[in-house]
Nucleic acid binder design. Structure first.
Length: 418
RNA sequence: GUGGGUAUCGGCAAGCGGUUAAGCCAUCGGGUUGUGGCUCCGAUAUGCGUGGGUUCGAAUCCCACUACCCACCCCA
């Protein structure tokens, strides 16, 4: 029991971390290529930030947050997402007083108390980007472009970009009224889930998986038809920008966001190849969020991208992530003198930046070779009585089997050359 | 929160009520004190998720619990 990680958490073991390093490095590279800077916010925030930011009625806030009181009586919550904390930091540090827009990226753990399943964990990790300070659709398109380029460069193929506009509070309310009006006479026929969605989030009914509900929803008023002039224009601009950048998309009028702060642009990169949780990246615009959490009205747009889901998708797509070599040279020794000398040699070579290892288990000579092979050493340096006398080691290339005598002082150079 | 599935060595896995629980991979040791990957030999579960029960006898049947997986919901 004590030797089990808590439900919904996963260890990333040493033989797997290189994959994480790989995507993290690429993520940093691409964000910086786009002119974004990294931000690091705390692991936890005041609970109220999320209640106000994400929205009191959302599932995330109502039943999924890891919330506790600290010893000072403050209600604290492990962050379930990255946008609200980023906005909070932007406001707190009055970054709006600097040249705008502000473009940031991050790489964070998130915590949500959910029932784990494929692609869904209680502690998961996401990459994110946010652009603050511009209401212009150019920013939305740029955010989407980062996601598109990143995913593409990671070798992911079976992925679709779906976009939608969820309108603004005004047009969304109109649509909601019209939709409920439309659904009212059919209410009794809806599935139980949708009955509960009727009041809370009727837009979700449009996306119900039940074929019965799908039929009932036929001809229902769609958000896109209810957009006000401003929102409609914005959506057109977004599409124009995406087309100009050659980013393929499909309009999915059924995309709904579960976080209250989204307005206008909503988008998702979705796949079918990693199970039911197919959204690898999702985001949108949130012009009212800053004000909602008590700050100035600062427009923003961004996305979150699930690292675990990305890794799953890469695996499903057969993307090969190169495993770095952990040992350039293994020093195999015979006899005590050689072993002690090997210790010194190992230190010298390590100072040269070479990855060197020796036996830690008192293996016999043959065992040392076997071990060198197992850990994938590129070279084995052999030192015994003969070598000690000659002042040169036998350097064996483990791949070709080729062996040469190399003076101790020339070893670093010889190994680095290949 | 609601469903469904699975639990035998580090990994994969046979076993389907009857003497000592297959096998493969991995690991460790060895094949005459100096060279790995191939090959050969040997070692490694008194134990079958946990606790009860049925039975002369259970990994094999029943019950409960627990863990993990998958799906709904929701989302990254």
């Amino acid at each position: 029991m004590l030797t089990n990680a808590p439900k919904g958490t996963k260890d990333i073991m040493p033989d797997q971390v290189y994959k994480w390093h790989y995507v993290e490095k690429k993520w940093k590279e691409i964000c910086e290529r786009y002119g974004f800077k990294e931000i690091r916010t705390p692991m936890f925030e005041h609970t109220e930030l999320f209640q106000r930011g994400i929205g009191d009625t959302t599932d995330v806030v109502q039943k999924e947050m890891y919330t506790f009181n600290d010893h000072g009586g403050r209600s604290i919550t492990l962050k379930p997402e990255g946008t609200s904390p980023a906005v909070r930091a932007f406001l707190e540090h009055k970054t709006y007083a600097e040249v705008q827009p502000t473009k940031i990226y991050y790489d964070i753990p998130c915590f949500r108390y959910e029932k784990p399943q494929s692609g869904r964990l209680r502690q998961f990790h996401q990459f994110g980007v946010e652009t603050f300070g511009t209401p212009n659709m150019v920013a939305d398109a740029e955010i989407i472009a980062i996601g598109y380029d990143f995913l593409t460069e990671m070798g992911v193929t079976d992925l679709t970009l779906e976009i939608n506009s969820v309108g603004c509070p005004v047009c969304r309310a109109n649509h909601r009224t019209a939709l409920k009006e439309f659904l009212k006479p059919k209410y009794d026929q809806l599935c139980d889930t949708c009955k509960s969605r009727y009041e809370k989030n009727p837009m979700r009914i449009l996306d119900c998986k039940s074929p019965i509900d799908q039929a009932l929803v036929e001809g229902a008023p769609m958000m896109l038809d209810y957009l006000c002039d401003e929102c409609k224009e914005a959506f057109e601009e977004l599409k124009e920008n995406l087309e100009a950048m050659n980013i393929p998309y499909v309009v999915n009028p059924k995309i709904v966001r579960g976080l209250d702060y989204y307005i206008k642009t909503a988008f998702e990169f979705v796949t079918n190849s990693i199970g039911a949780q197919g959204t690898v990246c999702g985001g949108g615009r949130y012009d009212n969020l800053a004000e909602e959490v008590g700050g100035l009205p600062i427009p923003g747009v961004g996305f979150g991208l699930g690292k675990e889901r990305l890794l799953m998708l890469m695996e499903a797509n057969g993307v090969e992530i190169p495993e770095p070599r952990i040992c350039d040279a293994f020093i195999a020794t015979m006899g005590k003198d050689a072993k002690l000398f090997g210790q010194k040699l190992m230190r010298d070579l390590r100072k040269e930046g070479i990855k060197v290892q020796m036996d830690d288990l008192q293996r016999n000579f043959k065992g040392q070779f076997k071990y060198a092979d197992r850990i994938g050493a590129a070279y084995t340096i052999v030192i015994g009585d003969n070598e000690m006398q000659m002042g040169a080691a036998n350097l064996k290339n483990m791949e070709t089997g080729e062996q040469v005598e190399v003076k101790f002082e020339d070893l670093a150079k010889a190994i680095k050359e290949k």
